[in-house]
Design a protein around this nucleic acid. Structure first.
Lengths: 207, 207
DNA sequence: TTAAAAATCCCCCGAAAGCGTGATGTATTC
DNA sequence: GAATACATCACGCTTTCGGGGGATTTTTAA
């Protein structure tokens, strides 16, 4: 069986080396290449066509979140696992929003990484054990709707207590448009009023 | 000037001893007594009438949160500082809800404790530096409204997306009553719609 | 036992939210 | 050049919310 080809992205050489060392201990994977920034990563993704990309979230200039979004747009089949020193929920949420398939803390063990890779390749969402979420929470993350920029903007204004007319005035758009966006938000979160919407969105780290 | 008399409450003897040792290094305070549980603490609060109580949050049987609430009810002038290993926001919020005047992580230094005591005695809210909140957040905590049990219950249902009629049915009470509670919540949080209410309440750790 | 706090209930009314359905312009991507 | 996703706008209709009152009954604490 073909080995899983992985591209590792991180701006710290030490992390790259560490990850390489760990991956080399896993029989069914192969480090296809490494990159120190998002531009390099995008190039290598093109030329190497790896099965999986493991990338730091905090990259200079173009963040790992942005990188993930671009990767997913260009190569939807390619899997992406985000990595960070902190298990910050909002980071995780943002990664999921961008289409990431998993999240690892940098302190993750070889065993954990070995477990994460097949899961992600299989289409499941992997979250580092350190993240400390129960299954329900993880499921919620998986079913977390992806919202557009405009929707996010309006979501924040709703959370601030603005009414539709007020939002319309503030954004120089029609009341009807605001209403449509609000409706789309309610539909995406499968709720039927703003109170529940704000609760879910807050929990998802979107506010 | 009279020394500040302090009652220390914790179920771990080691913590008691450690806190005592630290407090003894501070010139303007005096350890009036120590307690290993809430019952003992309440008795000593009565007999010793300390100016300040420093209590663990995680006490067996009756928690530090509950203890704080009772102390504040019986002796509103007595100050209470909560203590915990973790700087968990929801714990802090609950302590504030119960009327606590400050919060310390157990890893707090002598300097920090020395700073916290006069502040709290002065009527200010002290939060351990480790809590990592900016001033705005701390202010919000101070102005966090205290809500009743019933209000909290209804708040949760609103956050779940239930409408007033649905809540009324669920709790076997009149629609008007639910409406009144909702209005009181809106008034307490100084908002004018449920979306903002849920945002603030979530941020306050009430949901 | 008595006063205060919490929970309960009631009504009116206008504004906002929520639901359905459809349509157009415009980037961006394939 | 076609398809897709996004943002924009429209309208009618029903329900719910939010603001303004006021009132009574439990519970709880002093």
């Amino acid at each position: 069986m073909e080995k899983i080809r992985i591209l590792v992205v991180d701006d710290h050489p030490m992390v790259i080396e560490g990850m390489k060392a760990i991956l080399q201990q896993i029989s069914f994977v192969e480090v296809a290449g490494t990159a120190g920034n998002s531009f390099q990563a995008l190039e290598l993704a093109e030329t190497l066509q790896p099965h999986l990309i493991i990338t730091d979230i905090n990259l200079p200039e173009v963040s790992g979140i942005e990188l993930t979004a671009r990767i997913k747009k260009n190569y939807p089949a390619m899997k992406v696992i985000g990595m960070s020193t902190f298990n910050d929920r909002s980071y995780i949420s943002q990664m999921i929003q961008s289409g990431a398939d998993g999240f690892l803390v940098k302190s993750a063990s070889r065993e954990e990484i070995e477990q994460a890779i097949p899961m992600v390749l299989d289409g499941q969402l992997y979250l580092s054990v350190d993240v400390g979420m129960n299954r329900t929470e993880k499921k919620n993350l998986q079913h977390q709707p992806v919202i557009t920029r405009r929707e996010k903007e309006i979501l924040a204004l709703i959370a601030d207590g603005l009414t539709n007319p007020q939002i319309a005035e503030k954004l120089f758009i029609s009341l009807n448009t605001v209403d449509t966006h609000r409706k789309n938000l309610l539909a995406k979160f499968e709720t039927n009023n703003s109170a529940a919407l704000i609760k879910l969105a807050t929990r998802a780290g979107l506010i």
